[in-house]
Structure formats: C-alpha cells, structure tokens
Design a protein around this nucleic acid. Structure first.
Length: 317
DNA sequence: GCGTCCAGGTCTACC
DNA sequence: GGTAGACCTGGACGC
C-alpha cells in the first residue's frame, strides 16, 4: 500500500528525553511494530488511526537535554484538521513527550538496586503503545511460549494478515486490524499463524474490539486499576497481559522476568519462578510503589550493567 | 531420526 | 477464594 506525505509537525518533549533509547530500546523491543526501521536519529514506523494505516517518519533534531522531534505523517487519504490534531495528541502520548522523569530519577538515586540504572539509560521513556490491538497481539503470543516461538507467531500474523506500507522510500510491515482478525476463522489462524489455542482468544479479542472497546487513548485517561480491569475482561487477557498493555505499564512479571527480579529482590534464584511471582509483586510494590512500571522497563533494559555490578549474569535466562 | 518435554499464562471445573 | 489440570505447537534435548 502506497502512502503519501500529508502532514508534519514538531513535538518538544520534556527534558531529559532520549529519542533512540525511547523508541529503539537496548533490550530490542520496538515502539509500534517489529518491522520499523531506525537509522541514526530517524524512525520509520507505522500505526493505525481511525481504521486508516498511517506511516510515520520521526526524526530527533535535538539532544537529551534539549529534545525536539520532527514528525512527518504519511497516509492514503488527506487528514482533516480535527484528525491531524487527534493524531498529534496520540503520538505525544505514545512517545511520552509530556512525561517528566526527574522525580523518578530522584527516587531511583536513593535505591541500592537501581541507583545506577539511569546512567546508561538517561532520558529513556517506558512503554505507551500507540494502538491497543498490536499490544494485545504481543501479550497473547508471548503467553506460554519461548520467545522464538512468539516471534514466529507474530511474524506469521503480519505476513498473512498485516499491511505492507510503502512511504518515504521505505517499506514497513504493520499489524493486522481487529476487523481482519475478527473475519478470520480460528482454524485458519491455527494453520497459517500457528497460534494453537491462542487463536480462539485472539479472534474473541478482535470481536470485542470491533463491537466497541476503549482505545489506548481512552484507557490512558482512566484510573490505571480501572483500565487494567477493562483489559482483564478480554478473553485470554490475564493479569500479566493486562499489566503489559495497560497505559503507564504495570509490573508484568512472567517466568523470565521473575527469575531476574528474584535475584534482585530476594538475592537468590527461586526454585519455582511462577510460584514466586506473587511474592515478588508484593516486594516490588512495597519497595518501588508507583514507580514499579518504570523500574520494570529500566531493569530489563540494563541487564548487562546490573550483571556486572551484582557479579551474576542476568542476561542468560 | 524419533520420542519426550515444556515454554516470557489463562481459564475452568471442582473443592 | 484457592488450585490442579488442560491447553496448541515447535524447538531443544537425549538417545
């Protein structure tokens, strides 16, 4: 699908703000789609807005202390003034440009475990998904599968049901829409995307979204516990998935991250990481309170430095 | 090459 | 309200 440039604007994030660390994280996680391209200070990526695929070229023109982002928008259709404004607002939310990290950094400086995780990652913002359905696809495909298999399922979903967006001399592959998945049979998703038992859940989620469900922008305006409960009402979305998707990020401990936080918080590797999740969540809540979401992202993106300081390899789990 | 095990959770039935 | 057991499937591993 060919897209043409329809709009551009500038965002001025609250300092400190490091664009590369925010959208192209050291641990390898993407901002909107695994297929987005990052070169020097520019990200070519995509989203879907009002059911229309949108291409984005976002360039950092500033520094961590004086940040400035130049955004170019590509679409098949012209955007009216109201849509342009809403899209700008959505991007500002998803790029966390209004989010001030200073209070968090002051808190982290007093914490023995975390005191230097911000050295490598100064200006890194956490996770605020542009669109809800892709975040839910990620959560569903991560369930009960090694990362290699999760990647396989996501790749096949994009290959068979996603969109190839061509703009600005780049091609970016983007996630399928809820409408597309809702109109696909469970059997077909099992066969083509190798989703196994998850196919039933993904179709149910797509149907619920199609029938009317709060967008990520809507969820971000809700109290985080209310947003989490809304997400957990979706079929196949439990506490872990809801905490990964919810605005502001919860503390989505799974077996992998539980091993890491077990060493950090309990000073030992738990015999049964799944069993330890409840204890670890309580410990983390007690220690880090409202900052647990940020702590989660900072720790998992700073494992080499933490490993060196603790003398334990946290990167091998 | 073949068999077995189990993974970056969630739901349901049963107590 | 707490919990064992089932759930798809493919890759890792042992033989």
């Amino acid at each position: 699908m060919q897209l043409k440039k329809v709009n551009s604007f500038v965002l001025k994030p609250v300092s400190p703000y490091n664009f590369e660390l925010t959208v192209h994280k050291p641990a390898g996680w993407w901002w909107s789609t695994p297929d987005e391209k990052f070169e020097k200070d520019t990200l070519w990526t995509a989203t879907r807005f009002n059911d229309e695929p949108i291409g984005l070229r976002i360039t950092s023109r500033g520094t961590t202390l004086e940040p400035q982002l130049e955004c170019a928008v590509f679409s098949q259709k012209r955007l009216d003034d109201s849509t342009r404004l809403k899209l700008k607002h959505m991007l500002s939310r998803a790029l966390e440009t209004e989010d001030d990290l200073k209070e968090f950094y002051a808190f982290v400086a007093r914490d023995n475990i975390l005191r230097d995780v911000t050295l490598d990652l100064c200006g890194m913002h956490t996770v605020a998904w542009p669109e809800l359905f892709p975040a839910l696809i990620l959560a569903v495909t991560l369930q009960m599968a090694p990362i290699k298999r999760s990647n396989q399922m996501m790749d096949l979903l994009m290959e068979h049901y996603g969109e190839n967006l061509e703009f600005d001399a780049k091609t970016v592959r983007y996630w399928p829409s809820p409408k597309k998945i809702a109109s696909t049979s469970v059997e077909e998703l099992q066969a083509k995307a190798k989703l196994g038992y998850r196919a039933k859940n993904l179709v149910a989620i797509a149907n619920t979204l199609e029938a009317g469900f709060p967008s990520m922008d809507d969820l971000s305006l809700m109290d985080s516990n209310v947003a989490k409960k809304k997400l957990m009402a979706l079929r196949g979305i439990g506490e872990y998935s809801a905490e990964m998707v919810m605005p502001g990020m919860g503390f989505p401990l799974d077996v992998w991250s539980a091993k890491i936080f077990s060493i950090l918080l309990l000073d030992k590797l738990s015999d049964d990481p799944r069993e330890a999740i409840t204890i670890l969540k309580k410990e983390a809540d007690k220690r880090w309170g409202k900052w647990v979401g940020r702590v989660f992202v900072y720790v998992l993106n700073d494992l080499p430095r933490l490993s060196k300081r603790l003398g334990t390899d946290l990167t091998s789990f």
